[in-house]
Structure formats: structure tokens, C-alpha cells
């Protein structure tokens, strides 16, 4: 009957992959490539947050917390226990998933503002704990001397800019593809159904509590993956990045790119990482700028940039395509 348009849906992924492969060679600027590596890491978190917010309709203002738990856990296991980075990263991801599970069960019973406040509180608790960790890190500023990832004897340290870039983006694209598969499945539809109507979802057999926790844990796992990569790329982590400011930036990325659209996550992340670079807004004012941007987007394009662009595209398409016009006229 209906075949899910088999090759068409891969086109955006292929285009993204081509751009990502060309970019570092075309740019040739190590600073810019490093910024794009960071975009890759944020993309992972924002994709997960988009599943949580845009698809399942649950908010989190504490995802920098999971980012931080992943980073610190992997870093500490590596520095303090001497575990190889790959092993410490895997343990850190599992540990973060466990925390998300236990946090998720009670907090996801809350709705709307209450859920926002609870997750915000969680993020701040994590930030405070990380800030008071100098007894463990032996360094008042943060955790230093984290070992870089190694693969076949190659070290992915900060001098290997290309290596970090490609490692980050291969994982980010894998997460994108996995997430798109999920959204086009029974599970993804359950997420969306919870957003659309919990009553209807439940009457159709969707276990609401289970799927809410599932999407929450999944998004936390994505954040933990980004955290581990961040820790072993930078080889030094400080608590200041794992706080509310970052959580809000992540939410802004989701909203501006477009909730309920995986590609929105990519666009939102790229845009919000580069905008401050282009505008050279003074550091303290960027959160104000995000606030204004968030307001403008919410008022004028609640579906975000990708949503808006899709609508525009469809409108143009129907105007210029005679076939569609004929269909519309009868």
C-alpha cells in the first residue's frame, strides 16, 4: 500500500554529511573547526531535548546537569581510577542513565511549570555538587589531566582538531539517524501521542509513565555522550559550563530550530553557536539576546525555523507547481 518514501527521506542526511565532510577542508581555520566540534556535541544534547520537548511535550531546564554528570563521571574515572577513556565513558553514560531514571520517575509525574521547576532544581543541584568537588579534583578550578581518547594508537587530543571534529560528528549523525528512526516508530508515535493527548494515548494502550521516563533517559544518555566527549576532548572541565545558563541555551536551540523536528535541532544549534561569534555580543548580554530571540520566535514562528521554512517551501511549491494547482482546483 503506502511505501514509506524510501530514498527521499535520506536526502537531508546525505546533504548534511557532505557539508560536514567538506567543511573542515574548506574552512582550514582550526578555531572554526573547533567551534563546529562543539556544535556537534551540542547537537547530540539538543536532538535528545527535542525528542523530550518537541515530541513528548515534556520540558527540562536541567539538561546541562546530565551533560555535567557525564563529563565529570568519565573524567573522574579516568583521572582517579586510571580507567581508559573509552571504558570510563561507557560507565559514565550508564551511570547518567541510572540517575536520569531515578530522577525521571518522580519528576515526570509533574506537568508544565512544575516539571520545569523540578528539572531546573535538579540542574542547580548538580552544578552545586560539581562546584564543591575540589576535595576530589585536587584543583579548585575544575578537573584537569583527563586523558584523550585513543584509537589504533592515535590520540584525539586538542592538537588533532580534525580527529575531534570527525569523531564528534560521526557520533552526532549516528544519534540523528537513530533518533529519526525512533520518531518514525511505535515508540516515537507513543511520545507524540503523549504530547497530543495523554487521555487518548492511555486508552490506546500507551503506558504513559513508562514512555515519559524512556524519552527522559534517552535524552540524558545523549547529553552524557556529549559530556564524555567534551571531557576527553578538552582534557579539562570546570563546573561553570554545566549550569542553568547552558540548560537555557539548549532549550533555546530546540525552540528556535523547531520543536518536533529533528532537523530543527541541528539548525538551532548551528545558529545559536555561531550567532554570538558573528555578532560579537559582549559575554554578559548573550542571555538577554537569547531571551529576545526566544520571544520573537515563540510569537512569530511557534514551529521554529525549520517548521516555518517547511511551510514556506510548501506554499511556494504549490504556487509554482501546476500539478498541485490542478489538484487543488478540483
Amino acid at each position: 500500500m503506502i511505501k514509506d518514501s524510501s530514498y527521499k527521506k535520506h536526502i537531508p542526511t546525505v546533504i548534511l554529511a557532505i557539508i560536514l565532510i567538506i567543511y573542515p577542508f574548506a574552512s582550514g581555520n582550526n578555531y572554526h573547526i573547533n567551534v563546529m566540534t562543539l556544535v556537534g556535541l551540542y547537537t547530540m544534547i539538543v536532538v535528545g531535548l527535542n525528542l523530550l520537548m518537541g515530541y513528548a511535550g515534556q520540558i527540562s531546564l536541567g539538561h546541562a546537569g546530565f551533560f555535567g554528570i557525564g563529563a565529570y563521571c568519565s573524567g573522574l574515572l579516568n583521572v582517579k581510577m586510571g580507567l581508559p577513556p573509552w571504558i570510563s565513558a561507557i560507565i559514565a553514560i550508564i551511570f547518567t542513565a541510572g540517575i536520569a531514571y531515578f530522577i525521571g520517575i518522580p519528576t515526570l509525574k509533574l506537568k508544565g511549570h512544575y516539571l520545569a521547576m523540578a528539572t531546573l532544581g535538579f540542574g542547580e543541584v548538580v552544578h552545586v555538587i560539581l562546584s564543591k568537588m575540589d576535595w576530589l579534583t585536587d584543583n579548585p578550578d575544575g578537573l584537569a589531566d583527563i586523558k584523550p581518547f585513543g584509537l589504533f594508537g592515535i590520540k584525539f587530543d586538542s592538537s588533532f582538531v580534525m580527529g575531534q571534529y570527525f569523531m564528534a560528528w560521526i557520533i552526532a549523525v549516528a544519534i540523528l539517524v537513530i533518533s529519526m528512526n525512533i520518531t518514525n516508530s511505535r515508540v516515537g508515535r507513543a511520545f507524540k501521542a503523549i504530547h497530543g493527548s495523554e487521555t487518548a494515548a492511555s486508552s490506546m494502550g500507551v503506558n504513559i509513565a513508562k514512555y515519559k521516563v524512556q524519552v527522559f533517559v534517552l535524552s540524558a544518555v545523549y547529553a552524557a555522550v556529549a559530556g564524555c566527549l567534551y571531557a576527553h576532548f578538552r582534557q579539562f572541565i570546570a563546573p561553570s559550563i554545566f549550569q542553568l545558563h547552558t540548560s537555557i541555551t539548549l532549550v533555546t536551540m530546540v525552540v528556535i530550530g523547531g520543536q518536533g523536528n529533528i532537523w530543527g535541532a541541528v539548525l538551532g544549534t548551528v545558529l545559536l553557536t555561531w550567532l554570538p561569534e558573528w555578532l560579537t555580543v559582549a559575554e554578559e548580554y548573550d542571555i538577554m539576546f537569547y531571551g529576545i530571540l526566544l520571544m520573537v520566535v515563540m510569537i512569530f514562528m511557534p514551529d521554529g525555523l525549520v517548521g516555518r521554512l517547511t511551510t514556506l517551501f510548501h506554499r511556494l511549491w504549490s504556487r509554482f507547481s501546476p500539478r498541485t494547482q490542478a489538484e487543488e482546483n478540483g
Binding site: A190, K192, A200, S203
Partner: peptide, 22 residues
């Protein structure tokens, strides 16, 4: 109780949730 964030087909496919396991 229609899920306004989904297409008609997706809405109906939610009804297939309990028939599938993946």
C-alpha cells in the same frame, strides 16, 4: 481527543500500539 501534532495516519497508527511490541 485527537492528537493535533500528528497526521491522520499517525493518529490511527497509535491505535496499533497494543498490537505491536517493538
Amino acid at each position: 481527543q485527537i492528537m493535533n501534532n500528528m497526521t491522520v495516519l499517525e493518529n490511527v497508527m497509535v491505535g496499533y500500539h497494543c498490537k505491536s511490541k517493538h
